[in-house]
Design a protein around this nucleic acid. Sequence first.
DNA 1: CCTTTTGTCATACAGTCGCATGATAAACGA
DNA 2: TCGTTTATCATGCGACTGTATGACAAAAGG
Lengths: 196, 196
Amino acid sequence: MPKIVDHEARRRHIAEAVHRVIHDKGMESVSLRVVAAEAGMSMGAVQYYVTTKDQMLLLALERIGIWIGERVAAVAAHQSTPLDVLRATVLELLPLDEERSYLNRIGLAFQASSVVSEDQAAAMRLGLPLLLSFFAEQIRAAQTAGQLAAHLDAGKEASILYAFAQGVVNATLVGHYTPEEVAALLDYHLARLRAG
Amino acid sequence: MPKIVDHEARRRHIAEAVHRVIHDKGMESVSLRVVAAEAGMSMGAVQYYVTTKDQMLLLALERIGIWIGERVAAVAAHQSTPLDVLRATVLELLPLDEERSYLNRIGLAFQASSVVSEDQAAAMRLGLPLLLSFFAEQIRAAQTAGQLAAHLDAGKEASILYAFAQGVVNATLVGHYTPEEVAALLDYHLARLRAG
DNA sequence: CCTTTTGTCATACAGTCGCATGATAAACGA
DNA sequence: TCGTTTATCATGCGACTGTATGACAAAAGG
């Protein structure tokens, strides 16, 4: 077993163990020992790939950013019109089923954690502009295709759309909305953008 | 000093110490000892008013809900038209200055914590419908006053407005938006609701 | 064969955690 | 005045924390 080890795979394995711990017991119960147990390895092995707890959390944060990005890209690729892309990608970000709830629970935990850790905040800020500019791009494409009103400010609409999604995530995770209500809200908002 | 003590005041004092700890060092570093030190009292004294850590956090959560509610009510009382009320109360919820950032940092921490604690989630769900129905009420009033388009669904608009606010809070606390951008976004959205 | 590298492990360390307990002092009711 | 209640405090307990260290096994290079 020694010598030849796929470091990338090991790191991903650790990151996913962190994800599961955060999802099941919250950020407060993330510890090297707990994560090691969840990953099925000894504490020393975890320490070999991750020297500090902060680094471990940062690894898990980057990993989930990549994961979400891949999911969004995959969903976007299956749509035909810009408006469909927009709607589908926003839906992908909302906690409408178990897997998306899983991602959003972890995301919200890191959101709060980032307020206190500048390293994590910096990692969070990396993905955000990408998503916002992607949204804005789709809005502009939908405008030229006649799917959305031409007078909309694509940049501001993208920001509002993303903020709306994040806010809905918060409310839904504390149990305020059902998936049906969430989808209805999004469609109501998007319909508003169609008419001139 | 013994015997006659204002329990309400003591509890508020403890809750505010919890708030400061959460704001400065995050939810993870909330402990009975740290809070006691922050409150300037011994750990035993804290335990006398709060038997468990979870109870202490719940106290701090309820207290901040009350605080935000009072602030919103106070701001709303100083406005003349329904649309002004709406705009002013949403602005009050956003991290546009140090005090509102303070409140929102703590709020976001509890938002994440509530995902894992059902007690806290229940407390969170108490205030939410009140705010949403208040928003909806103001929207309807603005509609009858001719300030907002009559065809809007007041309930859905209220939900979207609140979700937008929460989402903007998240992004701003991570350092993505400046206060000016936040205010511009809100005004852009509200302006959209004016025209028919 | 021997040495070096790579990976894993158990353990030690000082510190903190939540919670429980018993002592103590101040003010009230009798 | 005396006991009771109210409030505060210091301290102990076992468990857990993040990090550091040294031993050790398996493969690779000489």
